[in-house]
Amino acid sequence: MKIETSEKLKKLPPYLFIEIDRKKKEAIERGADIISLGVGDPDMPTPKHIVEAGQKALAKPQNHQYPFGAGMLSFRKAVAGWYKKKFNVDLNPDNEVCALIGSKEGIGHMHLAFVNPGDVVLIPEPGYPVYNTGTIFTDGIPYFMPLLEKNGFLPDLDAIPEDVAKKAKIIFVNYPNNPTAAIAPKEFYVKLIQFAKKYNIIVAYDNAYSEIYYDENEKTMSFLEFEGAKEVGVEFHSLSKTYNMTGWRLGWVCGNKDIVAAIAKVKDNYDSGVFQAVQEAGITALTSSQECVEEMRKMYKARRDALCDGLNALGWNVTKPKASFYVWAKVPKGYKSSEVVAKLLDECAIVCTPGNGMGKSGEGYVRFALTVPVPRIKEALARIKNCKF
């Protein structure tokens, strides 16, 4: 029997991070001592108090049934309380918050709620691949917004043709940004909301890295802080990066109640909700001491400084990021992104991400994830020094 996949599946590019993981495993099988700075998966364990809360919740028989729906009200209240404390944003836990099986799931499913064949989806480029794959699955038309250094790695909303804007259903925005590590100024949010209102476009704001910042005077923001934001959009968030909970698969979408309800309706038909024991662990994460988050920031700052200072000492041109746990580094002169990644893997046993793998505007850069301890970063730098770029 010949197995034929759907045309939509054939349109999908290879999922970048699966490919990176495959190449890493192949190198390990060859006996290489890999230093993995590729996939943005925190290397530290989930804090002990969160694990213990999850263990206790796991033993409760009432958590062993279908969870169904938008999530436990207690979890949604915890999200609303966290938003009020962090961003001074008021959320109604009854209808403005929906639990997700990780924010990736919600971002991918959002297209099904709003995109019809031929509708345009505005996508930052380079950017998180799921923005585009969700568009392909719904027969939408991706319009890529280049994130260029000269524009502060912000999309140039004025450069979007009016006929494209009129056909657009969703605009995806992500700050602190993956992969460029850029943050957005207040003026951008104001302009974004005005743009969305003018063309009746839903803003899907991906804020997964909001808690990884390095300057107390430049704390990251929520899109929902700004006047009119709830009229036009929602924000996706996740416990993955903030609390080292990538494997737990827990996040949420919040904001405009009608948009949240539409995403929840899609989920009702695709999954049965988030395991309640995981939600209980999430409640503990959001409502207990945030000292673990402070320690996380200190740890990533030390790693950031070690990598950026080390690369610059080797002649690279690297700007220290103000947020996220990524370093968006210009490749040495005379090299392309894929060439640098291949050279680092083959000669140095270092895994990183090619900038152009996340969009053509990423050519000329590689992304390093700060997901190994400082001693391993110093070992990586020693290997790069011997690599002779």
Results as ranks from 00 to 15, higher is better:
261 A>M: 13
310 G>R: 05
233 G>R: 07
114 F>K: 05
336 K>P: 03
328 W>Y: 10
229 A>S: 04
232 V>Q: 00
239 L>F: 09
298 K>H: 15
298 K>W: 15
196 A>N: 12
322 K>E: 06
25 K>D: 13
181 A>T: 06
342 A>P: 02
262 A>I: 04
385 K>A: 10
108 G>A: 02
119 D>F: 09
316 W>C: 04
28 I>H: 02
345 L>F: 15
246 T>A: 12
166 K>V: 11
73 L>F: 08
129 P>A: 11
67 P>C: 06
173 V>N: 08
219 K>C: 07
259 I>C: 04
311 L>R: 08
99 A>Y: 09
91 L>T: 09
196 A>L: 12
105 E>I: 01
203 V>M: 00
181 A>N: 05
21 D>E: 14
120 V>C: 07
330 K>I: 01
34 I>N: 07
96 E>K: 12
19 E>V: 12
243 Y>F: 11
172 F>I: 08
159 A>E: 11
239 L>K: 03
84 K>H: 14
188 F>K: 10
102 G>W: 04
164 V>C: 14
67 P>A: 09
80 A>W: 03
240 S>N: 10
298 K>M: 14
226 F>T: 05
349 A>L: 13
250 L>M: 11
322 K>F: 05
273 G>W: 02
111 H>I: 07
188 F>G: 09
189 Y>I: 02
125 E>S: 06
383 R>C: 14
253 V>I: 15
93 P>G: 12
292 C>S: 03
307 L>F: 05
377 I>G: 03
234 V>Q: 01
314 L>E: 08
276 Q>C: 09
100 L>Y: 03
369 A>M: 13
381 L>T: 04
223 F>N: 08
324 S>Q: 00
79 V>T: 05
64 H>A: 08
111 H>T: 01
293 V>C: 07
139 D>K: 00
266 V>K: 10
306 A>P: 01
291 E>S: 14
322 K>N: 01
48 K>A: 02
331 V>E: 02
164 V>E: 08
382 A>Y: 13
50 I>W: 02
382 A>D: 13
31 G>Q: 07
293 V>K: 03
151 N>E: 15
174 N>Y: 10
162 E>L: 15
203 V>E: 00
261 A>F: 06
360 K>N: 13
92 N>W: 13
222 S>Q: 09
308 C>W: 00
